[in-house]
Design a protein around this nucleic acid. Structure first.
Lengths: 142, 142
DNA sequence: CTGCTTGCAAAGGCTTTGCAGAACA
DNA sequence: TGTTCTGCAAAGCCTTTGCAAGCAG
């Protein structure tokens, strides 16, 4: 699945749809998040944004990411003990994580029949489902 | 699924089975891990162990946990951006994580038909699969 | 002896916080 | 002018590392 670099107007629209006032910094960060690189870490956003005209501080990056997650604009994804990435694709899908290369790719949900949700504890409902399939490369002739 | 407090001999055996030399500290840590509280964090282990006779340093806890994971004695489980827990149940199963209470419970794998693994990237094999179903409590009358 | 283990304390890396100034309505 | 937002620097937290002492074979 590919993403497009969104137009400024599109990004602003998306922010508004999620009840986020579209400040310059937030537009910048959202644009980075929504660009073709779907899975992006806080640090990568920091780099990406600060290569553009608008500079954004670390504090603002982190605060804004937290805000975006709370507002449902992006999904927080735990791939590694020490690695959180943000996923701009909020549709229901899962992930391959290649431990050897660090590569993270989507699995469209329909490919993984995960419909049965039996025995839900009483009084609870499902907020989200996270499936991470950890891959390794086959040992090959070196 | 319930676990038993293992006998010292059992724990040593388990360590040996995983090619881990059973030092005093490792036995202590393994016992904590294998006790009824299946999902336990580094900090909880630290507390648990240091309430026993044998004190173990933080450094050793972390090093030992790393060792155990590498040797396949326990499974590292990412529940929260900032929370890693260790799961002494290494059989194939998944987890409910109640965001409201922090409670973490098992889903036996058979209850979630997750057999299809289509479109595996070329040259890779599945190392592990992690499914976390995030739950919330239904809003009720207060 | 020689190598593996442990533990202390320091270093590290990422994230959050406090607070003052800037931007916006 | 009041509220929201931003950014700097400091603080915090969990985890790792360096290194010396301890222990085991």
């Amino acid at each position: 699945m590919q993403w497009f670099e969104r137009s400024r107007a599109e990004v602003i629209d998306l922010l508004l749809q999620h009840e986020i006032s579209p400040t310059t910094q937030r537009i910048e960060i959202a644009t980075a998040l929504l660009s073709y690189a779907q899975h992006i870490s806080a640090e990568e956003i920091l780099n990406k944004v600060n290569h553009s005209k608008t500079k954004v501080s670390k504090a603002t990056i982190y605060n804004t990411l937290g805000l975006f997650v709370r507002k449902g604009l992006v999904r927080e994804l735990l791939v590694d003990a020490e690695k959180v990435v943000y996923d701009s694709n909020t549709t229901f899908h899962h992930h391959f994580y290649n431990v050897d290369t660090g590569e993270l790719t989507d699995i469209i949900a329909d490919d993984v029949p995960l419909n049965a949700m039996p025995y839900l504890p009483n009084g609870t409902y499902v907020e989200s489902v996270e499936v991470i399939v950890r891959l390794r490369n086959h040992a090959t002739t070196h």
